[in-house]
Amino acid sequence: MGAEPHETVGDDAPAKARRAAGDRPPIVRVEDLTIGWGDVVLQERLTFDVNEREIFAILGGSGSGKSTLLRFLTGLEPVTKGIVEVQGRRDIDLDAGFPPFGVMFQAGALFGSATVGENVELPLEEWTDLPPDAITAVAKAKLRLVGLDGAYGKFPSELSGGMKKRAAIARALALEPNLVFLDEPSAGLDPITSAELDDLILALNESLGLTFVIVTHELESVFSIVDRAILLDKASKSLIANGPPHELAESDDPRVRDFFDRRPARRDPSARPGTPNPT
């Protein structure tokens, strides 16, 4: 499946705005990309696009290379085979200035020796000529944007898991990127906090027009906020699906359907004949 313009679910205005995103040029373009570690190849010949203002998900089972793909997209790993183009720039060099995107890592990766406010201020101090009081004002506004008004002077160790991720999003937004990569934003969060984070992503997408590329396997989150997703298959080392989540869930490919229809085989009488059901 290619990166076709896609259908989104629902008839609300923001969704329509996102639907129109399919007409814009891709903000991320990946062509024939091979990813892996050393001699180990995780995925081969990956080809897909991410459109502007889209909430795009990279799905796949554990070990399929989702987070590794994110490292290649963000320039943390050098591309040796294939093409990665982000906002029209090939081969992102992270040493050459601030990159044209923000990244939120799985556990937040906030700098533990600095306060939450200092974490958000850091990129502003480095890459802008704003005076200190203006930097503080911007950092506080970013924290307010993600619902962390009172966390400015706190250290990351004083925050809960969900708050750390929000703070990390605030830091990722510090330099006003229009593309944000999120690595497993829902990992380790309870359903309510996870839903709050989904709300935040949707709000930022709809009100600021941000594009999100999200690595996840949280299906509820995928169905509620994601416009389009790709599915990486560990066994065939390839991209096996690309499209809106609801379409993927009804795919003819059993590997794709199995991923979305994740019922335990023990609860499914048609699966694994003869399998016992111990009590």
Binding site: L76, L94, D95, F105, F111, P123, E126, A168
Partner: peptide, 18 residues
Amino acid sequence: GSMKVSEEVDALRTLGLR
């Protein structure tokens, strides 16, 4: 080492800091 394993070093790089 702690910064490396908690991805803080990667975070520095993605903020354009060496």
